[in-house]
Amino acid sequence: MTKAQAGILASLPEQGRYVFFTLSEAAAQVQVALKALQGSVDSNKVVVGLGQQVLQALDKRIAPMHEFPPLKGPEFEAPSTPKALCLWLRGNQRGELIEQTAKLAAMLAPAFTLNQVVDAFVHQRSNNGHGRDLTGYEDGTENPQDADAVTAGIATGQGVGVDGSSFWVLQQWQHNYAVFNHMTVQEQDHAMGRRRSDNEELDDAPESAHVKRTAQESFEPEAFLVRRSMPWWSVSPQGVDRSGLMFSAFGCSFDAFEAQMRRMLGMDDGISDALFRYSKPLSGSYFWCPPVAQGKLDLTALGL
């Protein structure tokens, strides 16, 4: 049985909400806030991720943990947007998540200040449990399952308080539908490397195809991640809505993600991922998700 927060390995919820916080007070107040959080969250309904800023405020170090590095390829880049804390709220009704957000923000003040909220959802969930990106392509097809998911997504052999934890990467990607819709169906499929109609991988897809750029078994060592991405949508009062995919992945370290991101950007061979033709990352943040012990967040690695 893994000590991981339950929501990490669980199937996607119908509704999700990513609630980001900045750090606003001294370490003493951070400790109080984290202790309150520790005793009040159900890890199936709320996945907790702590940023490097929190570890630094507490003068603690978790070996694989660091800030998201700014990465730049020949044509595109992946921005670094550090945050102190992220709570992934998971549920079936958006109203519940809105109410929960207010309660958690009040509980974490004054140490943490709510900085950003991204609402997400499952789109066209299929019988296999996978949802689709808003471009219509299935997401998570190559996700490791069961024991393989634990191996890929959960830390082991790193000591008490760290074993059972996970290292979480979040990137908010915004799609340009005007560009995407101007592409032919074949161009869209070749950009992804799969047919949207039946999700079959294309043998004749170009080397820039997203599936080829991120084929997890093609790296040395293999770069498997547990993906839990969800589409997001932001309503604009001016009628110009924004939307895309909140890329969310958990690993036993950040090595697998960084290997994939470098290849997507063409940092190794100069070939950029075709996904960049119609989508771009707006953010990039790393978080450490503490393990669970006796039904509560295990914060012993932080001295709490």
Rank of each mutant, 00 (worst) to 15 (best):
Y137H: 10
T151M: 07
V117W: 12
V150L: 14
V160C: 11
D119F: 05
R132L: 00
Q158G: 05
G159D: 04
D146H: 05
Q145D: 07
N128A: 01
Q158F: 03
T135N: 00
G140V: 03
T141V: 09
I154S: 08
G159Y: 15
H123Y: 14
G159Q: 07
V160S: 14
G164V: 02
V160E: 13
T151V: 15
G131A: 14
Q124S: 03
G153V: 04
Q158R: 08
G157K: 10
H123M: 05
T135S: 00
G159C: 11
N127L: 13
A120C: 08
F121V: 02
Q145V: 06
F121G: 06
H123R: 07
T141M: 09
G136W: 01
T113V: 13
V150P: 08
G161R: 07
T141A: 04
Q145A: 03
L114D: 13
D119E: 12
N143K: 04
Q145F: 11
L134E: 10
F121C: 00
S165K: 12
Q145N: 12
D146V: 01
Q158L: 13
A155T: 05
L114N: 13
Q116Y: 11
S165T: 08
G164N: 04
A120H: 12
N143E: 07
S165W: 08
Q158S: 04
D148C: 08
H130Q: 09
D146W: 03
G161V: 02
D119H: 05
E142L: 05
R132I: 00
Q116N: 08
T141F: 05
A147T: 12
D119Q: 15
R132E: 02
Q145C: 03
D148W: 13
L114V: 04
S165L: 15
G140A: 07
D139S: 04
H130S: 12
E138G: 00
D139L: 01
L114G: 09
Q158M: 13
V117S: 11
